[in-house]
Amino acid sequence: MMATALKRRFLPGIALQTAALLTALLFLAPIAWTALSSVKPAAEANLPPLPPWPTTGVSADSYTALDAFGAGVGHYAGNSLTVAIATASVTAVVSLLGGYGFSRFRFPGRNALFVLVIATIMIPFQSILTPLFLLLTKLGLQNTLTGLVLIYVTLQLPFSIFMMRNAFDAVPREIEEAARIDGAGSLQLLARVMLPLVFPGVVTVALFAFLAAWNEFLAALILLSDQDKFTLPILMTAVRSGRFGAVNWGAVQAGVTVMMVPCLLLFLALQRFYIRGLTAGAVK
């Protein structure tokens, strides 16, 4: 009887943990495969991918070949990092102010304006790429990292404002009223009282913006024509194309690994804020 009770008590938990472990391994397998393939010697890099691990020793040949393209992988990684950080910073600040305004201020047409902002999510980016290109050309921002940042911020703002409004809606108004009684103004209230409470939401929208800008390909391909301003996804296109149709698969795997590492580290460092930010406003 005791053995049966123990089985009923612990077996469901063991089954759940086993299923979770297998699912995690399923998602981690491509990452491990790519990382191991990137350290194969040059003689093995373009051979069939099985086994994924190097059989004659670990080598940095693929990373050396990757760095030989153009101005070097460090230069293009710096461009991507600049664009991603700028996009995340501007998106976080603008969406913070926008979400605060939509959540806490009453003005004519507020709901209609909010719906209009959210509705822009349904517009495919590809359909407005030509007007955006012409607009940036008129402003003198075409083929600049600044213009690329503005495009990325524009694409991220609707979702980010929606997230931040939900985060502010989850904060009890009594906290705000108490701060106003103490003499806090709107901006002071936002900076000193509300910001610490909605900080997980700010981290979430910044993380989304960073990852989207870091991995975005189409806008960078269309808007950037100067090779020195290319981002990492555009570098990967050059690596993938190869010379005379040849593809250095080792360099491709090395480039994918380089692109993965910042995203993984950033997510692991901020995951506790990310989860709290996603659930902000879900329960009232």
Results as ranks from 00 to 15, higher is better:
residue 83 V to G: 12
residue 83 V to Q: 10
residue 84 A to D: 13
residue 86 A to F: 15
residue 86 A to V: 07
residue 87 T to G: 15
residue 88 A to I: 13
residue 89 S to W: 03
residue 90 V to S: 02
residue 91 T to N: 09
residue 91 T to W: 05
residue 92 A to M: 15
residue 92 A to Q: 02
residue 93 V to S: 05
residue 93 V to Y: 06
residue 94 V to M: 14
residue 94 V to K: 03
residue 94 V to G: 03
residue 95 S to K: 11
residue 96 L to D: 02
residue 96 L to H: 02
residue 96 L to G: 00
residue 97 L to G: 06
residue 97 L to E: 07
residue 98 G to P: 00
residue 98 G to C: 08
residue 99 G to V: 01
residue 100 Y to A: 15
residue 100 Y to E: 08
residue 100 Y to D: 01
residue 100 Y to V: 00
residue 102 F to E: 01
residue 102 F to H: 04
residue 102 F to Q: 05
residue 102 F to Y: 15
residue 103 S to R: 13
residue 104 R to Y: 02
residue 104 R to E: 13
residue 104 R to H: 06
residue 105 F to I: 08
residue 107 F to C: 00
residue 110 R to Y: 07
residue 111 N to G: 12
residue 112 A to M: 05
residue 115 V to F: 14
residue 115 V to Y: 10
residue 116 L to D: 11
residue 116 L to H: 03
residue 117 V to P: 08
residue 117 V to C: 10
residue 118 I to S: 12
residue 119 A to T: 04
residue 120 T to A: 15
residue 120 T to K: 03
residue 122 M to R: 05
residue 122 M to I: 12
residue 123 I to L: 13
residue 123 I to F: 11
residue 123 I to P: 05
residue 124 P to G: 04
residue 124 P to W: 09
residue 125 F to M: 10
residue 125 F to N: 15
residue 127 S to T: 15
residue 127 S to A: 13
residue 127 S to V: 14
residue 129 L to N: 02
residue 129 L to Y: 03
residue 129 L to Q: 13
residue 130 T to R: 13
residue 131 P to V: 14
residue 131 P to K: 12
residue 131 P to H: 13
residue 132 L to F: 04
residue 133 F to W: 10
residue 134 L to Q: 14
residue 134 L to H: 11
residue 135 L to K: 10
residue 136 L to D: 12
residue 137 T to M: 06
residue 138 K to E: 14
residue 138 K to N: 14
residue 139 L to K: 08
residue 139 L to V: 04
residue 139 L to S: 11
residue 139 L to M: 12
residue 139 L to G: 09
residue 140 G to D: 10
residue 140 G to C: 10
residue 141 L to C: 04
residue 142 Q to S: 12
residue 142 Q to M: 13
residue 143 N to H: 09
residue 144 T to E: 06
residue 144 T to K: 13
residue 144 T to L: 11
residue 146 T to R: 01
residue 146 T to D: 00
residue 146 T to S: 12
residue 147 G to F: 07
residue 148 L to S: 09
residue 150 L to S: 04
residue 150 L to H: 07
residue 150 L to R: 08
residue 150 L to N: 06
residue 151 I to H: 01
residue 151 I to K: 00
residue 152 Y to L: 11
residue 152 Y to T: 02
residue 153 V to Q: 04
residue 154 T to K: 02
residue 155 L to G: 14
residue 155 L to Y: 09
residue 155 L to N: 11
residue 156 Q to V: 10
residue 157 L to D: 05
residue 158 P to H: 02
residue 158 P to T: 04
residue 158 P to Q: 01
residue 158 P to M: 02
residue 158 P to E: 01
residue 159 F to Q: 11
residue 159 F to N: 03
residue 159 F to P: 00
residue 160 S to G: 06
residue 161 I to A: 10
residue 161 I to G: 05
residue 161 I to F: 09
residue 163 M to F: 07
residue 163 M to I: 15
residue 163 M to A: 11
residue 163 M to Y: 02
residue 163 M to C: 13
residue 164 M to A: 07
residue 164 M to R: 07
residue 166 N to K: 07
residue 167 A to C: 07
residue 168 F to V: 04
residue 170 A to K: 01
residue 170 A to T: 11
